[in-house]
Design a binder for these strands. Sequence first.
DNA 1: CAGCATCCCAGGTGATACTG
DNA 2: CAGTATCACCTGGGATGCTG
Lengths: 119, 119
Amino acid sequence: MSKTKETSTNFENKQLLIQCCSEVYAIEMISGQWILSILYGLVGGKLRYGELRKRIPEITERMLTLQLRKLESNGLVKRTVYAEVPPRVEYELTPSALKLTPILKQLKDWGEQHKEVME
Amino acid sequence: MSKTKETSTNFENKQLLIQCCSEVYAIEMISGQWILSILYGLVGGKLRYGELRKRIPEITERMLTLQLRKLESNGLVKRTVYAEVPPRVEYELTPSALKLTPILKQLKDWGEQHKEVME
DNA sequence: CAGCATCCCAGGTGATACTG
DNA sequence: CAGTATCACCTGGGATGCTG
């Protein structure tokens, strides 16, 4: 670390922005090509890794794993590992993530209105 | 086009997602390192390019221009060019963009709550 | 079953210099 | 004043193959 001066400066700016502006922080969390697909996949209840994968056929294993880890570390998804053979891992939304859904609904409504305005 | 098979497929998927899910479309619009800074810079009313730049000292001219064009083509910002010397260009939020602000407020509130939950 | 490791390319972004 | 052009870098994400 502390190698690339400008990059680290930028990173610090971004971190600062995320810390002071909670909306930036929130948007960071729901940004990313797969985040919403995963969130929506889980609104129905907990799912195993393989089940989740079937609901999002286009995603690669790599990205599903990466994004789930991101969601987990962001506190939007809870990951439960069962000490069994064969292994079983279940994912579910946290209460916090569930509170996000009405806001997503509003974004959807805004988006639809905005599309109409646009032509 | 039609060169890289997988990439174009992916692009199509993404476009499809944006078209069918208006929340994805909305999130796309407010995602990006500078979008919110610019939006917030303009909530007070119209500003000239240079004035806007002073409000966001860290942004480069290149990025300010690019992001403003993105916002313009997305219908969030209106750009007005005055045929004068020296040139004058003013930017202002569209009504649609203004409707977004309460939703951003909610995202902010959620973000703050979520931060508290997180430790 | 539920991942991780590796390689690789495309696109986004910064720095810098130039222009109508 | 309000941009555009060019180069160069870094990260995100895909493909593929391996493992506890």
